[in-house]
């Protein structure tokens, strides 16, 4: 049955034209923005060596395109999971699935996993071509990338945002379950997030105050903060997932 839920979800994803078109548009905007920035950097506009008309036009267009890219990315990464999870409530397919003997627990976790996988695939799809363009423009040199990694750390770049995004998907799922797929789920998700930060922020302040007042080395302080950030995301991820699951298990559909 688990595979059946997976397969049916993948069937849905491949037939969800609206979302697929939106993702494609986001991909194209990102590519255009990347190419724009590469041209901008290579043209010497920053050093003032490019022609005035070119510099002005690119200086006007590029920020606009970048904002458009960021906005469509926000829509894709926030609203697509929302739509993907809430759509079954809207058209009663959830009722039919449960009435056909699908276990609620299996359904919940399969849906959560498929949504997370879908967004990971979307992320890879959106980032691949821009990365290739940047690498090509730097003649394959990855020095700039290693510099960023060295200055920030691989955990900060990859793991913390990854867990954070999983936590966001679990939060969206929880809000959708609480509101039974209503559009208000978005506001509820924002509200829950705000509530969670009210609890987490004081704890973070206490930790920061205690470690910066101590005599430990800076690297240890940074490490503690990093682990706190990871722990914080893991706590919220677990809490949202378990609460959502328990509500869903006993919910009238």
């Amino acid at each position: 049955m688990k595979n059946a839920i997976f397969n049916s979800e993948i069937f849905k994803i491949t037939h969800d034209q609206g979302v697929n078109i939106l993702t494609l548009v986001n991909g194209i905007v990102n590519i255009v923005v990347t190419i724009g920035w590469v041209i901008f950097v290579k043209s010497g506009a920053m050093q003032g060596s490019a022609s005035n008309a070119f510099s002005i036009s690119i200086l006007v267009l590029l920020p606009l395109l970048t904002i458009a890219g960021l906005l469509t990315s926000a829509v894709v990464f926030y609203l697509v999971p929302f739509r993907s999870i809430s759509v079954d409530y809207g058209n009663s397919l959830l009722q039919l699935s449960i009435a056909s003997g699908t276990s609620r627990t299996r359904y919940y976790f399969s849906k959560l996993t498929v949504t997370a996988l879908r967004m990971m695939v979307t992320f890879v799809f959106l980032i691949t071509i821009p990365t290739i363009i940047i690498l090509a423009s730097t003649d394959g040199s990855v020095e700039w990338l290693t510099n960023i990694i060295n200055s920030l750390g691989i955990w900060e770049i990859v793991f913390v945002p990854f867990i954070g995004y999983l936590s966001l998907i679990a939060l969206i799922y929880l809000a959708v379950v609480l509101m039974k797929g209503s559009l208000l789920s978005i506001l509820v998700a924002i509200g829950i997030n705000f509530g969670a930060s009210l609890i987490m922020t004081p704890i973070q302040i206490i930790i920061q105050t205690s470690i910066y007042n101590s005599t430990v080395q800076t690297s240890v302080q940074a490490g503690t903060l990093l682990w706190w950030a990871i722990l914080q995301q893991l706590i919220t991820l677990t809490a949202y997932t378990v609460i959502g699951w328990q509500v869903f298990k006993h919910q009238d559909l």
Binding site: A4, S8, N91, S92, L93, Q95, L96, S100
Partner: peptide, 23 residues
């Protein structure tokens, strides 16, 4: 059920295929 609806943007056959996958 009286209040059941299906995927309106899909064809009848696509709706059937979806449930065949699920079942």
């Amino acid at each position: 059920l009286d209040d059941l609806t299906l995927y309106r943007n899909w064809t009848g056959r696509q709706n059937i295929e979806f449930f065949m996958t699920l079942k």
